[in-house]
């Protein structure tokens, strides 16, 4: 599904190259649950951003579903966002001025999903995450865990094939964090959604089936879990 070849990312500063990523080559297949781990500043988030096409690599090639992403124009990229990729963020990044319902609805509007279909999908998600009673609340009326649940529901609404999560539990207490990770595991195993997460926590990484250890921009280890 994802094929990275010799990905490099550096910033040139006064003629000196500051590498963030160096010669990263890896393949991630449909249905995998990958955790990217490593110390602060290792390049985890950058790698995830490159996978999510939010940043461009300085060098190297990247194929997403067999398509060369570096050659993609903006329209095509946005199409990928709409149909294949869901993002989950550490700070949830819900839109403050929208209710829970509206936040989940937004991607469907961009994807041009019809009204009836939209309503049933949102109802389904709300039901699944036990948020029906909270659908008309605004994000600041929810706890962090609940906000992240909405964030995930929003990511799932467009029925993506892959979810990219940047420290999804970083702002949460451990009980809530566990709940979120269980949910990810379930999504991966029951719905077959590919998940890539960046995390600090060894415990969280155990929920997945593969760990990429990164240090100083280089993949040091690529291990399977379990």
């Amino acid at each position: 599904m994802i094929q990275l070849n010799n990905i490099e990312k550096y910033y040139a500063n006064k003629g000196v190259k500051n590498y963030v990523l160096r010669l990263v080559t890896t393949t991630i297949n449909q249905g995998e649950f990958v955790s990217i781990m490593g110390p602060s500043g290792a390049g985890k988030s950058t790698l995830l951003n490159i996978i999510g096409m939010l940043e461009e690599p300085t060098y190297g090639s990247y194929e997403f579903l067999g398509e060369d992403v570096t050659a993609l124009n903006e329209r095509k990229r946005i199409e990928l966002y709409r149909n294949h990729i869901g993002f989950v963020f550490q700070a949830y990044h819900l839109i403050d001025e929208m209710t829970v319902y509206e936040n989940i609805e937004a991607p469907l509007l961009y994807k041009k999903v019809g009204g009836a279909e939209r309503a049933s999908r949102i109802a389904d998600l709300l039901d699944r995450f036990n948020m029906v009673a909270k659908k008309d609340l605004f994000p600041n009326q929810l706890s962090g865990g609940q906000q992240q649940l909405v964030g995930i529901a929003r990511a799932l609404a467009a029925q993506p094939s892959i979810i990219l999560a940047d420290e999804p539990t970083g702002n949460l207490q451990s009980a809530q964090a566990e709940e979120i990770m269980e949910l990810f595991k379930k999504l991966n195993q029951e719905d077959g959604i590919t998940i890539i997460q960046v995390t600090h926590s060894e415990k969280n990484a155990q929920y997945g089936n593969r760990i990429l250890h990164i240090a100083d921009g280089v993949v040091k280890e690529d291990v399977l879990v379990g």
Binding site: H93, L94, A106
Partner: peptide, 11 residues
């Protein structure tokens, strides 16, 4: 933030 989120949702 709103802009960023909407962009990754495919706006």
């Amino acid at each position: 933030k709103e802009v960023g989120v909407k962009k990754v949702m495919g706006a």
